[in-house]
Simulated assay, not measured.
Amino acid sequence: MGEQKSAADARASQGFATRAIHAGYEPDPTTGAVNVPIYASSTFAQDGVGGLRGGFEYARTGNPTRQALEANAASIEVGTYGRAFASGMAATDAMLRAALRPGDHLVIPDDAYGGTFRLIDKVFTQWGIEYTPAPVTDVDAIRAAVRENTKLIWLETPTNPLLNVGDIAAVAEVAKGAGARLVVDNTFASPYLQRPLTLGADVVLHSSTKYLGGHSDVVGGLLVTDDEELDAAIAFLQNGSGGVPGPFDAYLTMRGIKTLGVRMDRHCDNAEAVVDMLSGRREIASVLYPGLADHPGHEVAARQMSRFGGMLSVRMAGGREAARQLCSRTEIFTLAESLGGIESLIEHPGAMTHASTAGSMLEVPDDLVRLSVGIEDTSDVLADLEQALDGIR
């Protein structure tokens, strides 16, 4: 562990873009290939029984391309151990199973991602896991939700889709005092804008499908931690359950990470321009974006994020029907689930990504529209939204 930690410390001294491009792989000593090869092999030859070359035996257990991605992810989150999964939900499932046992309790956001809520509410409760929703914006409410059997506090910040902001350092102190672990879903911010491990989190989770992959062409998930014992438990489940990415998926994700910094700068630029434009429109009741000075989480976001991201939501003055009209009228903004790709996306969370929360205390407003602002020309992005809003009856 000492050698790995020293390597992580050395990487942390380099700039983000340098680590994103170089961490996890050195040019191949035989061919000089500067990009990690796609090791499309399901099994690996052994030098005698148990004589593994580089530690590889079977691709579910380990693959050189995946290993490079895992080291890269650990580096950009300034962590020690990274584990890659076939999807963000596979990573979520592994994290919950590694940390919880029947009879345990966890605290979740009261506006958690719909898939996370569905997994906990519909699956883990069948196995004796209890949960309590609490607002991520209220540290006292999170503290009050903790019980004697609480083993995990799950934090999204900013949250999906309401863009609420949680104070990672403050919640980390709550978790520490309760003898629980803090997991931060960092998907919306990305490690370019926010690094939860440096603020006291125990684990960082990503749907790498989103900003890390960045091109809407690969599905994946990542967990990063400094906890050697917890990493061992996660690695056991990764291998035992087999929810791993293939080598091509790992390659695509790693390729995406190389340009994360420059992409996020453009996502943020465009999102800020969209927020400015939407804030003055009569069709918009409110804009939800941490970069706004009057956003309730602005001060915390400014403290723990370098910028405010490419995600925003709006509540429509015309209610549900106006929300659906906006989603149907855009041309550059594609009506689709997911987020974080180079292209702009728009969706109605109540009927799409968060439909599983309907009828629960996590149900999202039906006048809500979520925007994932891409990296197209700013003028075209703005013009598309303006024409869509102009046509709402």
Rank of each mutant, 00 (worst) to 15 (best):
G220P: 00
A336W: 03
P296H: 05
G48K: 07
Q67P: 00
G200H: 03
T198F: 01
I21H: 07
A235E: 09
R118F: 05
T137H: 01
L278C: 11
E70Y: 01
S344F: 09
A178F: 05
L106R: 09
T198P: 00
E347Q: 15
R393K: 05
S41P: 00
R282T: 12
G15C: 05
D265R: 15
E229A: 15
A170P: 02
T61H: 04
Q387D: 14
D138H: 11
L100H: 13
P27H: 10
G291S: 07
H206A: 08
M316Y: 07
I129R: 04
T92K: 01
G297C: 04
S13A: 15
D276G: 04
V139C: 01
D121V: 06
E77W: 01
A8F: 00
R181P: 00
M311G: 12
R282M: 01
V244S: 08
P290C: 05
S328M: 06
A383G: 08
V262N: 04
K151Q: 14
K5V: 14
D202A: 09
V171F: 03
D227T: 11
D380R: 14
S344N: 10
R66D: 00
D380S: 11
A178I: 03
S207K: 07
A322N: 10
G280M: 06
A7F: 02
R97L: 13
D380M: 08
M361L: 11
A23E: 12
L199T: 03
P29G: 12
V165K: 10
L292Q: 14
E229D: 14
R181H: 06
P135R: 08
L69G: 03
A20G: 02
T198I: 02
S286K: 13
T187E: 07
A336G: 06
G54P: 03
R11L: 13
T330C: 15
Q126Y: 07
S372D: 05
L312P: 09
I21Y: 06
H105C: 07
L382W: 02
G115Y: 02
G166Y: 10
E321P: 01
S241I: 13
N186H: 07
A322L: 10
N72A: 11
